[in-house]
Nucleic acid binder design. Structure first.
Length: 1012
RNA sequence: GCUCAAGUGGCGGAAUUGGUAGACGCGCUGGAUUCAAAAUCCAGUUUCUUCGGAAGUGUGGGUUCGAUUCCCACCUUGAGUACCA
């Protein structure tokens, strides 16, 4: 009987589905193991062979753990809200729910076809109201929480309210908005309800605020920082501009330190941890306040007084603050260099700029501000070299020396980082240095024995501070400590840790996302009671923003909240007394994916987020496999929500994934056909004759091996046109021929890079009459490794592979390509290797039509093959080195074939070893051997070292470290005996050519090295 | 610029604590089988070679009896980040 993958694979996929073979139980005596794949977005294009790489690896691991006696949870679902479905809806008018459903069907069919051991009874979809009900619920929990720095965790907002009622906010140590006012308990109690709500919003973990957001006009929505790549939107590549909008934000900054600390407790790849560490961007230093000098303002006042003849009273009553009431707060990591400050720079957007600028400088400053506002973020980024700025005319007072320091504005200072102002130390910071040089500002040197005539000196180690009053003569570390001590003692600052991590914008002006469970009363957001969830996404006519610029939900006609009936009602009923408008924004893509791993533990629970028992049993993901592109998005937000839910005692652990592995990308191997790009030489225009000549020339392609240079190519094509009587010699002379590589569909190319010319000609109308300059009667294409993408025609569909070679071959081949974490190119031709391996395996069992298996005791050699395979495969799986175990299987099958082994004692364990990789063929053979249960329930074979014990060793004999020959020797020889035998050996004598060895190294069981 | 990862045959890659570099597979070459093709099987396949051997893991240096593996410098490629004070 022949190996028929199509029949076998279909049969067992049905068997697993019908018998719910991989359904995980929430109660078990076995130890638990939770294997998770990163949430797929079901795109319209379906899967290509790159997508399942990580799924195959995790499936192998999950199946392996089942063999090892674990209760394995291996679920799958869909991150089914998202931009592409909505863009498609805008273009075609089809409801995103409908297209999403169709896409999911395709995904499911493709996934099933590859034979994954998913527990589909736990499938979740983020766009399902039964799921997003709980996303909304988490949002409400965040709204009802604040971050108490004293307890270092999130607490219920009620605990904050009781503090405010009893003692005001003077002693509240919370993560909150920067611009919060101080008030007493009496103040609080006298505030209106609206005022109180406004203040509470400044503390809540999700809050409304006017923030500068990344607005993408083309998509009509805001984007998070991680959704922008190189200044344009990640999806679609549209420009992004800064814009102020009222948005929901998440106070992720409250968790900055814990997100950083948590990295030490989880087994994640170092590069991923590094990029989260960079993204959080902790820096330690000091916050220092510089007073602004008052004299300038007084002269202004006098000037305006004389001009406009204002009375003294009028000036006072106008309440213009005096400049000496202004302070500029800066953050610096180098308080030790404070005596090197020779100017200050504010971001052009800094709120003090308009207040302190002198009349004389006003025009220049305003021009500069306008110029920078016009430049997009991208321009500013691209243009790092140009130094620009303007002097405000105002001065600050150096807190230690009392000297006057010029205050400048410059766009190298970012409004969004730190305080939007820097104390410039040109001798120690290159940007300050460049700025000072450009504007001729003095550059005092405060470093001992350091030359700063060419560049700033930014090194810390070994640097000694000079010309710095009490800091002079101190090394960096000591100076830093003393500077902070003095700053704190004298009361103009304090030691501070700063984070780059910004609060995350959580509103999207889109339709296809989770609606907020929020309505507005007197302009203040109100949460809808948890028992009324889900608030279901309303129907709309159009998925575009409304004409007056509101988000798409502004088109909904039934989108108001009746607070009496606790139900969503028609907008026409809005009276702002009992019926209120609902929030029009929706949540971003990362909302649903920030907690889904918890939902899988109890996916169908209608009453709870997940039951306490399920959460306590499964706890966290033991192995999470996915791409590194989620490093600063999903993986950071999910850790944030998990920590929050942990604080609220909803989940039992504060890191959701113990171990994480990044799978590399599978790249495509594009096929290039070299087309002749033909045009007339300049000056050779022959009027109508030009068109005449060019129209005679068909598309000409040259095989890759026919040319080495562009010159070859040109000559070849010209000769071809002449030899084939397409053009006469004169016309050929007037041509210029260039080489233009065109992407051909990879399906037209065989394993020898030979192009199927007929298929290629029929592919495109313009190639119908194409002619080919061949080599050995073949057209050979060039190959290039590129990202797998439709535009390069190098996409390989797993459906085709499963059809032709089967899922088992696909799974083996994806693993065989190389290490899981690395990116590597796909070349379909290579799959024949694993396919013939499967056929060889089959032949070990089938010799003719009937299965032939022997119950005779295996030989020593057969046991040796089995046990070295068990050892290697087990080690490989534990190390996630799946590529090497595929080789090991090949070696085992090759050796057993050579030994003509058909012993049950050997082949049954071999099937179990292989079954995680190739589940279908192993189920079939296992079944044919007479086993009634699925092979997935069989225990993993146990390695016995006794089968690998050797009595002889083929010793490599090296001379000066170079292996020259080998000698077979018994392993029980002593060092001396080995040395004696080796030195007497004739080949040793030949190598030494009469020289006496200086030294002989003998490592018994390993090697002999002769030096001399 | 900074941070990280990686450079091994024609190609994907292997060599787990420093100990026989190139396992396994693709491709290629030759052969068997076949009317022929596919499939299958056998042999060979790093380079150079005077067929004895010799060189060889991005480049240069170092440690070691011995380095793809450890250390230093550099080059190249890829990824992340981007005026972060």
């Amino acid at each position: 009987m022949q190996y028929n993958h199509q029949e076998i694979e279909k049969k067992w996929q049905e068997y697993w589905a019908n018998n719910q073979t991989f359904k995980a139980s929430n109660t078990s005596d076995k130890p638990k193991y939770y294997v998770l794949d990163m949430f797929p977005y079901p795109s319209g294009a379906g899967l290509h062979v790159g997508h399942p790489l990580g799924y195959i690896a995790s499936d192998i691991y999950a199946r392996y753990k089942r063999h090892k006696g674990f209760n394995v949870l291996h679920p799958q679902g869909y991150d089914s809200f998202g931009l592409p479905a909505e863009q498609y809806a805008i273009q075609t008018g089809q409801h995103p729910a409908k297209t999403t459903e169709e896409n999911i069907k395709t995904y499911r069919r493709q996934l099933d076809q590859i034979g994954f051991s998913f527990d589909w009874s736990r499938e979740v979809r983020t766009s399902n109201p039964e799921y997003y009900k709980w996303t909304q619920w988490i949002f409400i929990q965040l709204f009802n929480s604040w971050y108490n720095k004293d307890s270092d965790k999130a607490e219920d907002i009620s605990s904050l309210i009781s503090i405010l009622e009893n003692e005001g906010n003077i002693n509240v140590n919370a993560v909150c908005d920067e611009d919060i006012i101080s008030f007493s308990s009496d103040d609080w109690n006298s505030f209106s309800s609206t005022k109180q709500q406004e203040i509470l919003l400044q503390y809540r973990l999700t809050f409304l605020s006017d923030t500068e957001v990344n607005w993408c006009p083309a998509l009509g929505t805001v984007l998070a920082n991680d959704e922008i790549v190189n200044g344009v939107s990640e999806r679609g590549g549209h420009p992004v501009v800064r814009k102020k909008m009222t948005q929901w934000s998440m106070r992720i900054s409250a968790y900055a330190q814990r997100l950083l600390d948590g990295l030490n407790t989880i087994d994640w790849p170092q590069p991923l941890k590094d990029s989260q560490t960079n993204w959080i961007g902790r820096s330690q230093g000091a916050s220092i306040k510089f007073k602004v000098q008052s004299s300038e303002l007084e002269s202004n006042v006098i000037a305006s007084e004389t001009k406009q003849s204002l009375s003294k009273e009028e000036i006072t009553s106008s309440q213009t603050p005096r400049n000496d009431e202004y302070e500029i707060e800066v953050f610096t990591t180098r308080p030790d260099t404070i005596f090197g400050v020779s100017f200050m720079t504010l971001a052009p957007e800094h709120e003090l700029v308009s207040k302190i600028t002198t009349d004389a400088q006003k025009a220049e400053v305003e021009t500069y501000i306008q110029a920078t506002a016009k430049r997009s973020e991208r321009d500013r980024m691209a243009d790092v070299k140009t130094i620009s700025g303007a002097f405000t005319g105002a001065y600050a007072i150096h807190p230690f020396s009392g000297e006057k320091v010029q205050i400048w504005i410059g766009d190298y200072v970012l409004a969004s980082y730190g305080t939007g102002a820097v104390m410039a130390v040109p001798c120690g910071d290159q940007r300050d240095y460049d700025f000072a040089k450009h504007f001729d500002i003095p550059i005092p040197n405060i470093f001992d024995n350091v030359d700063i005539s060419e560049a700033a000196h930014a090194d810390k180690e070994g640097t000694v501070i000079a010309n710095s009053d009490f800091l002079s003569g101190l090394k960096y570390k000591k100076a830093l400590k003393l500077a902070i001590y003095e700053i704190e003692k004298r009361g103009f600052g304090y030691g501070k840790t700063n984070y780059r991590l910004r609060d995350a914008v959580f509103s999207r002006q889109r339709y296809w996302g989770e609606p907020f469970p929020v309505y507005y009363k007197d302009g203040m957001p109100q949460m809808i009671g948890a028992k009324h969830l889900p608030i279901v996404l309303p129907e709309v006519e159009k998925y575009l923003p409304t004409e007056d610029g509101k988000p798409p939900l502004g088109n909904a006609e039934v989108w108001a909240w009746d607070s009496k009936q606790s139900t969503v009602v028609s907008n026409q009923l809005i009276d702002n007394k009992t019926v209120f408008p609902l929030e029009l924004n929706t949540m971003p893509g990362w909302a649903g994916s920030s907690w889904y791993f918890n939902r899988y533990m109890d996916a169908n629970n209608a009453n709870e987020f997940a039951s306490q028992e399920a959460l306590d049993y499964w706890k966290e993901v033991d192995l999470y496999i996915g791409g590194s592109e989620h490093a600063t998005g999903h993986l950071l937000y999910a850790r944030f929500w998990q920590k929050f839910l942990f604080d609220k005692d909803v989940v039992p652990v504060d890191e959701f994934a113990k171990k994480l592995i990044n799978q590399g990308m599978i790249l495509g191997t594009s096929a290039l056909a070299y087309k002749a790009n033909i045009y007339m030489k300049t000056g050779c225009s022959l009027g109508n004759h030009t068109d005449d000549i060019l129209s005679k020339i068909p598309p000409v392609f040259v095989s890759k091996g026919m040319f080495n240079s562009d010159n070859d190519f040109e000559t070849l094509v010209k000769n071809y046109l002449f030899d084939n009587k397409i053009l006469c010699i004169g016309d050929v002379e007037s041509l210029v021929v260039g080489k233009m590589p065109l992407h051909a569909d990879v399906s037209f190319v065989n394993s020898s890079d030979e192009l199927d010319i007929e298929a290629f000609k029929n592919w495109r109308a313009e190639f119908k009459d194409a002619q080919f300059i061949l080599e050995d009667d073949k057209y050979i294409v060039g190959r290039e490794v590129e990202k797998m993408s439709k535009r390069w025609f190098n996409v390989v569909n797993p459906d085709d592979i499963c059809e032709e070679y089967g899922a088992d071959a696909l799974r083996l081949f994806e693993m065989f390509l190389g290490p899981l974490e690395q990116s590597k190119p796909w070349k379909t031709s290579g799959i024949s290797g694993v396919y013939s391996f499967l056929k060889k395996l089959w032949k070990l069992f089938y010799n003719g039509e009937e299965i032939s298996i022997s119950d005779v005791e295996p030989t020593k050699e057969e046991y040796k093959v089995l046990h070295k395979t068990i050892k290697k495969v087990e080690e490989d799986i534990e190390n996630f080195s799946f590529n090497t175990s595929v080789s090991t299987f090949m070696i085992a099958v090759n050796e057993l074939t050579a030994q003509k082994c058909n012993k049950r004692e050997i082949l049954e364990p071999l099937l179990i070893l292989l079954s995680p990789y190739a589940p279908h063929i192993t189920e079939e053979l296992w079944n044919k051997l007479g086993n009634k249960e699925s092979i997935s329930t069989a225990p993993f074979p146990i390695f016995e070292a006794k089968h690998l014990v050797e009595s002889v060793k083929n010793y490599p004999i090296s001379f000066n470290g170079k292996m020259r020959f080998t000698i077979e020797l018994p392993l029980d020889l002593s060092k001396e005996e080995i040395e004696k035998i080796v030195l007497e050996h004739e080949k040793t004598q030949a190598q030494l050519q009469g020289r006496t060895p200086k030294k002989v190294i003998v490592v018994p069981g390993k090697i002999v090295n002769i030096v001399g």
